[in-house]
């Protein structure tokens, strides 16, 4: 698997097969028209619900119920205030950031170390360990949920940040190691060998040579895991039942069910907007790197 071969679609490279000569000019024009219509329709289907949600987050409750198609008379920033404080989105956001700070760092460091060894060293059992991790990408989390809850309780990690960090790391390892191993295999060997010649120890080679070279791959996995862990729902749902420790997705779902918020649509839409915006921003900034990472597994799977 090479990172080069799976670089995402790149207009600048003109990578699209050219079939300009197909059919007559009029048929091409007709095809283009139909294509554009379909694509615009789907764009509307995707964008409209999100826009509606964001606009509704600025409306008063009567406006949401009685004039769903109008823009708000005045921007109701109070919705965001209620969502952030009363509904607890602020607290959930802090909890999410705490857990992610630990789990993302842990995921990347531990995966990079394991991937380096799996990509660059020959030793008995190397293949077996690689496939053992690969197997973990196949099974969905909820099959292990029941025993996981009791294991985490037995380890006295239930309702703790550390517990959730460790579990997040463990479930992020398979794909991250799989991806980084492939990535590191494509990197040139010579620089490391030269460093060894100069008397650098294996640790120095890893930190001073390998990590800087593997940075693009590590960043791709950082974004990929940020989105996955930020959106994680099942694990906190069963491992963090304490409402003070809720994470964002989990807290949102709980809010939607709570009586008090069922009629405060404005605050709910605001809460959803607050939770959604960071992932959209990260996605738009890092779009290309992320797509490379996401599609890599599927293409070579």
């Amino acid at each position: 698997m090479s990172a080069e071969a799976i670089r995402p679609f790149d207009e600048a490279r003109g990578a699209v097969p050219t079939v300009a000569a197909v059919g007559s000019g009029r048929r091409s024009w007709l095809f283009g028209g139909i294509a554009q219509t379909l694509l615009i329709l789907w764009t509307l289907m995707v964008v409209f619900p999100f826009l509606w949600m964001i606009v509704s987050a600025f409306k008063s409750n009567p406006e949401i119920v009685f004039s769903p198609w109008q823009l708000p008379d005045t921007l109701q920033w109070g919705n965001f205030e209620r969502a952030w404080t009363e509904a607890g989105i602020g607290r959930f956001a802090v909890n999410t950031l705490i857990v992610l700070a630990g789990s993302l760092t842990g995921t990347l460091v531990i995966s990079a170390m394991a991937a380096y060894v799996l990509a660059r060293f020959e030793f008995p059992g190397r293949q077996f360990i690689f496939y053992l991790f690969l197997a973990g990408t196949m099974f969905p989390v909820f099959l292990a949920l029941v025993p996981l809850v009791f294991l985490v309780q037995d380890l006295r990690l239930f309702n703790t940040y550390q517990g959730l960090m460790l579990v997040y790391i463990a479930y992020s390892l398979p794909f991250t190691i799989f991806f980084l191993t492939g990535f590191m295999k494509t990197l040139p060997n010579e620089v490391g060998e030269a460093a060894v010649m100069d008397g650098a120890g294996p640790y120095r080679v890893f930190f001073d040579v390998m990590l800087p070279m593997a940075k693009p791959g590590i960043i791709a996995m950082g974004i990929f895991n940020f989105l996955g862990q930020w959106n994680q729902f099942l694990l906190p749902l069963v491992l963090m039942p304490n409402p003070d420790r809720h994470l964002l997705s989990q807290g949102l779902a709980a809010l939607a069910i709570q009586q008090g918020y069922q009629n405060d649509y404005g605050a709910l839409f605001a809460a959803m907007t607050i939770t959604m915006v960071p992932t959209l921003v990260v996605y738009i900034i890092f779009q290309r790197r992320l797509e490379a990472g996401l599609t890599a597994g599927a293409l070579k799977g």
Binding site: E11, L39, W42, V46, L227, N231, F233, L248, Q250, I284
Partner: peptide, 25 residues
């Protein structure tokens, strides 16, 4: 559609949106 269809980059980003947003939302 001949060369990359007009707006390909834009459609591509937009179509992908739902995938990066939490299934809960």
């Amino acid at each position: 559609g001949g060369q990359a269809i007009k707006g390909a980059g834009f459609y591509r980003i937009v179509f992908f949106f739902p995938q990066v947003i939490s299934a809960v939302i």
